[in-house]
Amino acid sequence: MNQALNVKVTEEQRDCYQEISNVAMGQAADLLARLLHVHVILPIPVVNLLEVNELRMALSGIESSNSVSGVCQGFIGNGISGEALLIFNDASFNDISKLLKYGGELDTSLELELLMDTANILIGACLRGIAEQLDVVFSQGHPIVLGQHVNLNDLVQANNYRWSKTLAIEINYKIEGFDINCDLLLLFAEDSIDSLNEKVNFLLED
């Protein structure tokens, strides 16, 4: 039997996670902006401690009626583990392929390539940014496709979590002047939250 963990995040810690995410998402957005030659509109990151079954509600940046595609990628290091999810509104791929000047017909396999390429950039840079500030090092697993052209509920349920609670950071990226919208979700495992809080306390005391 799993012992129920009584994890908590104080308002001061939540604010610190939000600020760390803010810096990390800016670094990731800068890479994307340079790759696509666009301006990325940065949101205020949303940080929440939630039940895994509430995850769907945390994805506020994407309309539930939209067809979506997504990948997930695990990460681990210094007693902290979790998963990063990148979910695209499928309408985005049209503009992304134009911006990257990919020739030819936009089909499922080209969309997959675009999805993997952007996931690689955004997830990698964001995790690196967070790790640097917390003074930890994350190793990343292989990206796994959660689904293409599916609805959001099915996509989120495609992933089976072994935790009941998660510290979720949601970053919704939009690109100015284009119909591109994606959600980057960082989910920290329940049993990592204490270690994370310790790292953050260190920053808060500094």
């Binding site: 803010n22 810096v23 990390a24 998402m25 800016g26 670094q27 957005a29 800068d30 902006a33 340079r34 301006h39 990325v40 940065l42």
Partner: peptide
């Protein structure tokens, strides 16, 4: 700012 894009 964390928004380090050249345009910002």
């Amino acid at each position: 700012s964390g928004d380090i894009q050249p345009e910002a």
